[in-house]
Design a protein around this nucleic acid. Structure first.
Length: 870
RNA sequence: GCGAGAGUGGCGGAAUUGGUAGACGCGCUAGAUUUAGGAUCUAGUGUCCCGUGGCGUGGGGGUUCGAGUCCCCCCUCUCGCACCA
């Protein structure tokens, strides 16, 4: 058919030509994201012919909107994934959703939206946002942890742990808001009050489920020495958290009582100085120790302590308080009767919940003794100092020294006495050496709706009965009303609660608590190996193929909890025969925070960047105060929305700036002008290719080159080497990008003639391929402009040619007495004599040697000559 | 208090094993583009007196032919832990 309006056709052609010569991120980013999806470029299956590489970034909570922290985290990961893929690895790079948690319940309470609806809608919108960044995930492995298919297997793992005795139930104290009738996490207690209703928080004893992480304490600690790919500070934090300490358990008998009191101490050497004893208020022996005369006082004290929340109890700022029980115990070495106190700073869940108090040598005991006028006895005298006199002491002496007032042990160095007193006690059956951990078992019960139900049924006759495997998963009921008050909605949901006992068939009730959401994130990385496996939690073959994660990337805020729980779970899964590795993450990269300057208007408070124009508030025109640079947060309004950024500059620019502005492990300071700079660089890259397209198309192969062309050729290969080494292992993306910028500058500076086309083409191709992991859309498009049909990754990573790096001459620095006085060119590979001769011949060098005697000449081949004169 | 890390131009940051300190980018300055430009290109930009020179990596000492880098002392900042017996 004829067209009646040929003019429009011409216009279309013109428009097309325009679009192809002008960089349009919106067009090419959409084009390539579509292409990757259509071609399934990032889909991965086990492949015995390729080396596997499992790259994982910490999966996000589906809050609904991505923030700059996500952009940075996932941009870093994507560079590594794309680079490794180009290097020929079979890369597993999955993404999913840490989908259970409180924000969904809060949204339900505030807006009446069901947590599931809220969560899945957020996931849908966040997936779109992540895809807009062009991240190379195998989306077919995506899952959300709130999916019943995930819960099913988590519940099964729990049942297996129960069988092995790794999960158990015990009574434990929690923060309790009497008004909201609910349990609060430590971070929901603000200055002793409930974050929601501001009422005073109490502690309350509740029966809760625990995972026996302490059984793995030693292994978790020992393996911190076998994780060379982890940052030292993360390992240090974990060691600190595990807190292994060597000491002694000693039993003190009670005057007039049958049962003794056990204490744990790291200082058995100070035992002769124990002048009283402090027990945790929750100690099980409190009732039997309190005498009738002291009852009233003790009850008052216990009442006070119960109003102090857990955070305050362990904060260190709390005033030391205590009360005498009326009872006495016997110091096993001195035979002396010492009073037994209750003290608010003694914690029931560390050691034995009882402390032998040695006021002369422990600061807390010292303060306590002074307050309640208890005796202080020095048993260690520091060497080379004046003797300690109790009445004159202003603080405890916690250092070393020789024992005094310690019977047969007098005169011994205290380190020796630790061993000897422990041995002596052991002999007499009054104590023994032991180790103690700060790490406590992991309480996993949460009195919440939006979590994985704990698969237990309580029967009056049979007790706590596990839900039979074939009845899994225990599903959350849909018809719940979330108000935020009156405890967990599950505990009030009769339809959910009522169930027959699987063992005896009698009417029973379900457990209404759900798991801590850290449980889901403790094994998701293994499930990515087999997301659709339906015969169990993990497909052993697939998991053994992919695990461990070769590189894990995420925020430092997870240094202890998540990363320790994940390590623990891996060991549990190993011992349950579900996988075969000891540690989940071989290498860990903890990326820094994304920060930005804060801005404040005297009238309107914190301002978003878009509320400021020319350093003035757009509302009132007042000049704004620049605050300090801090982590981006909504409360300070120092945030940049990734979606707006992508709209304005494109995903490639957003990615490039995140990677260029700072090395990954350091904090990144967001700066609009820096973003502009990256955008400009992308424009330069684009034009370098487009403007040279005619020159380099159909050029002859690269032959012998010399002069400026040889220099560009060398620069190309130097850049390939530099970028390869910066990415591989070092993760110095900022310097990798900087070196490509140098190459681009060199391309611009090079005045190409017709017969230089091959050198220019080589430089352009290297530039495009080296940038592909960082700015993939741009590079795919330019690769196509350069005439290639298949995706850029299929061409692999460029190799540098060692021969091309070599120059016939190199420039040496010549120093006289360590100061640079000249530069000379010598042939590559020149020996020391040649170097020295060239250096001595330099006129300026000679000036500085005039009238002096040469003492020594140091030659560093290829670098410098240093002439030492006197 | 304990533990970890950091301190380099106006700013973000380079300098991988001790070998030209300040790569690269931002900002700034000047020039070009026969109009303008928050576009593009080119050049300059640690600092000090005029130079082919002096000084310069938080401060002080040391090792070395040579120190941002190694050793000792001190100062400042950031992060984590903190009544753990």
């Amino acid at each position: 058919m004829f067209c009646t309006c040929e003019i429009y056709h011409q216009r279309d052609d013109a428009a097309e030509a325009f679009m192809e010569t002008h960089y349009s991120p919106a067009r090419i980013e959409q084009k390539w994201q579509q292409a990757w999806e259509n071609n399934q470029n990032f889909r991965v299956v086990e492949d015995a012919t390729k080396e596997k590489y499992y790259l994982l970034e910490m999966f996000p909570y589906p809050s609904g909107r991505i923030h700059m922290g996500h952009v940075r985290n996932y941009a870093i990961g994507d560079v590594v994934a794309r680079y490794k893929r180009m290097r020929g690895f079979n890369v597993l790079h999955p993404m999913g959703w840490d989908a259970f948690g409180m924000p969904a319940e809060n949204a339900a309470i505030e807006h009446g939206t069901h947590p599931a609806k809220w969560t899945y809608e957020n996931i849908d919108s966040m997936r779109v946002q992540l895809k807009r960044l062009g991240l190379s995930y195998d989306w077919q492995r995506e899952f959300a942890t709130c999916d019943p298919e995930y819960s099913r297997w988590e519940q099964l793992i729990f049942l297996k742990m129960l069988e092995k005795g790794l999960a158990y139930k015990k009574s434990s104290s929690v923060n309790w808001c009497p008004d909201c009738q609910t349990v609060l996490a430590n971070e929901q207690v603000e200055e002793g009050s409930c974050w929601r209703c501001n009422n005073l928080v109490e502690t309350k004893e509740l029966e809760q489920w625990f995972f026996k992480i302490t059984e793995y304490a030693d292994e978790l600690l020992d393996f911190t020495d076998q994780l060379p790919g982890w940052p030292e500070r993360v390992l240090a934090m974990q060691r600190n958290w595990i807190g292994k300490s060597y000491g002694c358990e000693i039993e003190f008998s009670v005057v007039g009582g049958q049962q003794g009191i056990k204490v744990f101490t790291t200082r058995p050497d100070t035992l002769f100085g124990a002048t009283f004893m402090s027990l945790a208020p929750e100690h099980p022996m409190v009732k039997q120790l309190v005498t009738a005369e002291q009852q009233v006082e003790v009850d008052a004290f216990l009442a006070t302590v119960s109003t102090q929340d857990k955070v305050a109890r362990t904060s260190g700022e709390l005033e030391k308080q205590g009360v005498f029980t009326g009872s006495y115990s016997v110091n096993p070495l001195t035979g002396e009767q010492i009073p037994v106190f209750l003290a608010n700073f003694v914690l029931m869940d560390y050691g034995t919940g009882a402390v032998m108090a040695v006021p002369a040598h422990d600061q807390r005991d010292f303060e306590f003794a002074r307050k309640y006028q208890l005796p202080i006895r020095v048993v260690i005298q520091p060497e080379g100092q004046e003797d300690l006199i109790p009445e004159q002491m202003t603080e405890a002496w916690t250092g070393g020294g020789l024992l005094v007032n310690s019977g047969d042990f007098n005169g011994q160095p205290n380190d020796d006495a630790k061993e000897k007193i422990a041995a002596y006690l052991d002999e007499r059956g009054e104590g023994h050496k032991t180790v103690n951990f700060r790490l406590r078992d992991w309480g996993v019960s949460r009195q919440r709706y939006w979590g994985t139900p704990i698969p237990i049924i309580y029967c009056d006759a049979c007790g706590a009965v596990p839900v039979p495997e074939q009845d899994l998963p225990v599903l959350l009921p849909d018809d719940v009303e979330l108000t935020g008050e009156g405890g967990s909605p599950l505990a009030r949901h009769e339809g959910f609660l009522q169930v027959d006992c699987p063992r005896c068939g009698q009417t029973a009730r379900r457990e209404s608590d759900t798991f801590d959401t850290f449980v889901e994130s403790s094994w998701y990385f293994a499930r990515y190996a087999c997301p659709d496996f339906s015969a169990g939690p993990l497909d052993r073959d697939a998991v053994n193929h992919w695990m461990p994660v070769d590189q894990y990337i995420g925020g430092i805020e997870h240094a202890v909890m998540h990363l320790l729980y994940a390590r623990f779970f891996t060991k549990v899964l190993r011992d349950l025969d579900m996988l075969d590795v000891d540690e989940p993450f071989t290498n860990l990269l903890t990326q820094g925070m994304v920060c930005m300057e804060t801005q404040r208007c005297p009238e309107h408070g914190w301002l978003y960047p878009e509320q400021v124009k020319d350093d003035a508030c757009i509302e009132c025109g007042a000049s704004v105060d620049l605050g300090r640079t801090e982590k981006m947060s909504k409360s300070k309004k120092n945030v940049v929305d990734p979606n707006q950024l992508i709209e304005r500059y494109g995903a490639d620019t957003a990615r490039l700036f995140s990677l260029f502005a700072a090395p990954p492990e350091k904090d990144l300071e967001w700066n609009e002008q820096g973003v502009e700079g990256c955008s400009r660089f992308i424009g330069r890259v684009w034009r370098a290719v487009v403007e040279n397209r005619d020159l380099v198309s159909n050029c002859s192969p690269l032959g012998e080159v010399d002069g400026a062309a040889a220099e560009l050729h060398r620069k190309t290969h130097q850049t390939i080497k530099k970028v390869s080494e910066d990415i591989d292992g070092r993760f110095h993306f900022n310097t990798a990008i900087a070196s490509v910028m140098e190459l681009v500058n060199a391309i611009y500076a090079f005045k190409a003639k017709e017969d230089d086309a091959a050198v220019v083409r080589e430089a352009l191709e290297a530039m495009v391929r080296l940038l592909a992991p960082f700015v993939p859309h741009l590079c795919e498009e330019l690769w196509e402009v350069l005439g290639y049909e298949h995706g850029i990754e299929s061409h692999g990573w460029p190799q540098w040619d060692e021969a091309a790096l070599k120059t016939s001459e190199i420039t040496l620095v010549v120093q006289v007495n360590g100061k640079v006085r000249g530069k000379v060119d010598v042939a590559t590979g020149a020996d020391n004599q040649v170097m020295e001769a060239a250096a001595l011949a330099d006129p300026n060098v000679q000036r500085y040697m005039e009238g002096k005697q040469v003492r020594k000449v140091i030659c560093v081949p290829g670098r410098l000559v240093n002439i030492v004169v006197s």
